[in-house]
C-alpha cells in the first residue's frame, strides 16, 4: 500500500490516502466541506458545486477532485462561502420549497445548509415552477417541487439497489428525475426500504405515512448544524 501524503486545507495539514478525494480526506480529518449532492458510499456526482474549493488557486469540486501531495486547498473563505450561499439560494428559488409544512424540515440537508450558511431569505426572484407529484406508489411519495437534481436517487438505485428506477430526463430548466416505467412510480419495482429513497437529501422522495413522527427538537439538525458530526471528529 502506498504511503500517505500531506496537503493543506485552509493552512491546516491534512493526511491523505492514495485514491481519496479532497472531500474524503477532509472528512477523515474532521474538516467539513459544505456539500449537497455528495453522499458517502455513493459515486460522487459533482453537480451541485456547493463543495467547490480553491485548489492550488483554481476552483474544483472537492467531492470529485483527487487529493494529492502538496495541494493547497482553500475551503472556509468569505469568497467561497458567498458563492455557496448563492448556489443554495438558487436551489431554493428554482424549486417550490415550503419549509414551514414540509415533513423533511429539521432533517432536510438543503434547509440545514441554508441555516449553516446564514441564509435568511433568497435575494433572487422565485421562479415558481410547475412541477408534478407522484402518489401512485403504496410506500413512496415523490414531490418534484422539492427536487434539487442532486442525482443521489439515480446513482443509489443503479449502484446500491441494482434497479435503475430513476433517471434524469430533459435539459436545462426542464431537467427532472423521471421513473423507469410506462407511467408512474407504482409501475416500477421500487420498495420503500430502497437506498434510493433513503438518500434523498430533501423532501422530494418520501416514505409514505411517516410524516412528522419525529418531534421537533429530536430531528437531525434541531440541536446542531449540519456538518457538526464531521467537525466533532477533529483532533
Amino acid at each position: 500500500m502506498s504511503a500517505t501524503f500531506t496537503f493543506t486545507i485552509d493552512g491546516k495539514e491534512i493526511k491523505g490516502q492514495p485514491g481519496q478525494t479532497i472531500m474524503e480526506a477532509a472528512e477523515a480529518a474532521g474538516v467539513y466541506i459544505p456539500r449537497l449532492c455528495y453522499s458517502k458510499d455513493l459515486r460522487p456526482h459533482g453537480s451541485c458545486r456547493v463543495c467547490t474549493c480553491m485548489v492550488n488557486g483554481r476552483p474544483q469540486a472537492a467531492c470529485t477532485q483527487p487529493a494529492a501531495e502538496g495541494m493547497v486547498v482553500e475551503n472556509n473563505t468569505d469568497e467561497l462561502q458567498a458563492i455557496r450561499r448563492d448556489l443554495v439560494e438558487m436551489l431554493f428559488v428554482e424549486g417550490n420549497h415550503f419549509c414551514p409544512f414540509c415533513e423533511k424540515s429539521g432533517n432536510c440537508e438543503l434547509q440545514a445548509m441554508a441555516y449553516r450558511l446564514g441564509i435568511t431569505a433568497p435575494k433572487f426572484p422565485y421562479l415558481w415552477p410547475d412541477r408534478s407529484v407522484d402518489a401512485s406508489h403504496p410506500e413512496v411519495f415523490i414531490d418534484r417541487n422539492r427536487c434539487i437534481l442532486c442525482g443521489r436517487c439515480v446513482n443509489a438505485s443503479k449502484d446500491a439497489d441494482g434497479k435503475n428506477v430513476f433517471q434524469f430526463v430533459g435539459r436545462g430548466e426542464h431537467k427532472r428525475v423521471a421513473v423507469n416505467a410506462e407511467a408512474n412510480l407504482a409501475d416500477t419495482d421500487l420498495k420503500g426500504t430502497d437506498r434510493a429513497v433513503a438518500v434523498c437529501p430533501v423532501g422530494a422522495i418520501l416514505v409514505k405515512h411517516k410524516g412528522y413522527a419525529t418531534p421537533v427538537g429530536r430531528r437531525s439538525y434541531d440541536q446542531k448544524p449540519i456538518g457538526s458530526e464531521i467537525e466533532s471528529k477533529r483532533k
Binding site: 414551514p100 410524516g211 412528522y212 413522527a213 419525529t214 418531534p215 421537533v216
Partner: peptide, 18 residues
C-alpha cells in the same frame, strides 16, 4: 406538547409524536 409555540407538529394521524 406540539414541539413549537406556534405551528408545531405534535398531533399526527392516529396520535401524537411525543
Amino acid at each position: 406538547t406540539a414541539g413549537k409555540k406556534i405551528h408545531g407538529t405534535g398531533a399526527i394521524p392516529g396520535g401524537v409524536n411525543k
